[in-house]
Design a protein around this nucleic acid. Structure first.
Lengths: 354, 354
DNA sequence: CACTTTCGTGGATACGTTTTCAAGCATCTC
DNA sequence: GAGATGCTTGAAAACGTATCCACGAAAGTG
């Protein structure tokens, strides 16, 4: 019924040449026009497709690239993944996707699995500590981080001053401390500029008590927030949720209730923004009359929301695409990091301080 | 620097046994307690991890499972994928994901790539014709369709009466013609019942001119729609978009403009629903006063919309999870298809006929 | 005690490919 | 014409694993 696939040996026999010749022809090596034609014809006729299994074993590496994201349900990571897939497809490379749930333990498990598969190129939105990536790097993996950097490892030696160098800067973008403890390239949105823009925008509307609603992996964003608002940061106005929607809602709701004096909220991601809208509505806070809202990350539904949400847009798809580019043409050379610009899109969720 | 990984040979030598014994111990074969313990200890000490490469080549199949979806950007497929990943992770299996863009050509290309990788288990949201799946099946792949069935192949011989059998029915669900031309199990939402429920709901509100806004792969839904509305179907009220958001918007906008007499719209997917809301707003049609709207597929933002959208919810994640279950424990036996229930969630986007 | 059965074990093989190596042959150079 | 040079080619060796098979010892049976 299912005739077993033709192997390179079959092709060689049918063409009356050695297997080495077939391999060379198909890999673009040198061969006489005469034999090349014959081999190609026979291969086509036998519908021969080289088995990735044999090749992988021989060169001791799986072709494809790994992709680790916290949650494909989150629109941002969906877009990012789509970018990676697009780039990988154009290169003909398969991509193994894992969802970590923002859990360092699951992440480590998935890394182990990729290692076992001999996947040697990985693009990841890291959840674990910096030293969670030791195994992957030690195994010789080419890793590129996307969207985030791993949080600083809780290491004891403190000789860990971040080098701000090694960044390919696009015009006017603020440099980011890429690849601090672990020396790994990254593709990031310009969180610092984005957050600063948002804060300045809210400031310009008269807001003074601006809250920050963050989630896992938003360390860089909250740092940028602290920097943007300046010295006296009211710590009660900075709250964090875990990954789940429930947690985000709880955090938002708690924030609104504990600090009714806040006049604006900056949500650090789209599920947090969603939670903020929901919580505000539930508590009968009108947006933007009672409270202004800026969401980090633009999503299609932001426009459908009532009111339409003012957002900081990130090029999620591009982040994925460029990360894939980096990891693909990392020909031994360690690629440099990339920072992509964000954009403030003003819609209707921000008003003057009440 | 990066010490090469230990192989089974190293373990065998270090433990003073043969490689066969090591393989057996690690694969759960029989071995004396004494040697088993030794081997295990040595393996742990050497941090040995069996290489998937060698194993795959030996058994001529890649461990993992393939997943083909039209677009990870679409929340529905994101949730579906997350379900697949969850199940696969609990089984320790890697999953290779491809995004087809609802394009049969890209789909075929991705199938070819999976074939080349010797991935022998595939769960797919099909875009191509039924006979586009010939190669995969002929190669012995275990395929499970999710969310859709492939459209009928434009074949010449017409002896193609669908067998409605071979379906594992949950209580009260309508049977679906699973695996018609190609005999492949599937995990589907009960589109027929879901659409019927929506139509009946709108009917109950007095609506008579109900439009259907569909996209690629919604053949079963439009059929259910036609069946639910009964004999005289106004073909102008049934419009289709291609996959893109732009196309969806154009279709929705065109529909509203060409048929201002329609009083309700049933959008067959979340991006179509989004487009409908946008188009209605742009044309100054009030929802639900001027036009009622039901969206097939519930998404988080449906509640944030103005007005909140009445939807037919599908268990997207479960669909993915169950599909993965099917494809994983398909121990030679061909698994049966599964149909999962949908649910009408009434929010605020439907009103009585104006 | 002689015989059979069971069990634990290791050597050898095959999986399909890429790559190295040396050999064969034609062409070029002096 | 002899030697050097270039190109094409096929045999063979890996790559790391699972599994077949045969062998020996221990256990069971008469």
């Amino acid at each position: 019924m299912d005739a077993k696939r033709a192997t390179i040996k079959d092709v060689a026999e049918a063409a009356g040449v050695g297997v080495a010749t077939v391999s060379r022809v198909l890999s673009g090596g040198s061969a006489s026009p005469r034999t090349r034609e014959r081999v190609l014809a026979v291969a086509a006729q036998l519908d021969y497709r080289p088995s990735a299994l044999g090749r992988n074993l021989r060169q001791r590496r799986t072709g494809g690239i790994g992709l680790l994201v916290p949650d494909l349900t989150d629109s941002f990571f969906g877009r990012l993944a789509e970018g990676v897939l697009a780039c990988a497809r154009s290169a003909g490379e398969p991509v193994v996707v894992g969802s970590t749930g923002d859990d360092p333990e699951q992440e480590a498990e998935l890394i182990g699995m990729l290692l076992e598969q001999s996947v040697d190129r990985l693009i990841a939105v890291p959840s674990g500590d910096a030293d969670a990536w030791g195994p992957a790097l030690k195994a010789g993996m080419t890793v590129v981080f996307a969207d985030r950097l791993p949080s600083e490892a809780p290491d004891d030696d403190e000789a860990d001053l971040g080098t701000t160098a090694d960044l390919m800067l696009l015009d006017g973008l603020t440099p980011a401390p890429a690849a601090r403890s672990v020396d790994v390239p990254a593709v990031l949105a310009d969180d610092r500029a984005g957050i600063r823009t948002a804060v300045r925008y809210l400031r310009g509307l008269g807001h003074r008590r601006i809250a920050f609603l963050g989630g896992p992996g938003h360390e860089r964003r909250v740092a940028a927030f602290r920097e943007a608002v300046g010295a006296p940061v009211d710590d009660e106005l900075v709250v964090f949720a875990t990954g789940s929607r429930d947690s985000a809602y709880a955090a938002a709701s708690g924030l609104f209730q504990s600090r009714p004096d806040l006049t604006a909220v900056l949500a650090a991601g789209n599920v947090l923004g969603e939670a903020a809208v929901l919580a505000a509505r539930e508590l009968d806070l009108r947006v933007p009359r009672d409270v202004s809202l800026v969401m980090y990350d633009d999503v299609p539904w932001a426009e459908l929301c009532a009111p339409p949400l003012t957002v900081i847009a990130q090029p999620a798809r591009d982040i994925g695409y460029r990360a894939a580019e980096l990891v693909l043409r990392a020909g031994g050379r360690r690629p440099r990091s990339v920072v992509l610009p964000t954009e403030l899109i003003v819609r209707g969720s921000c008003g003057p301080r009440r």
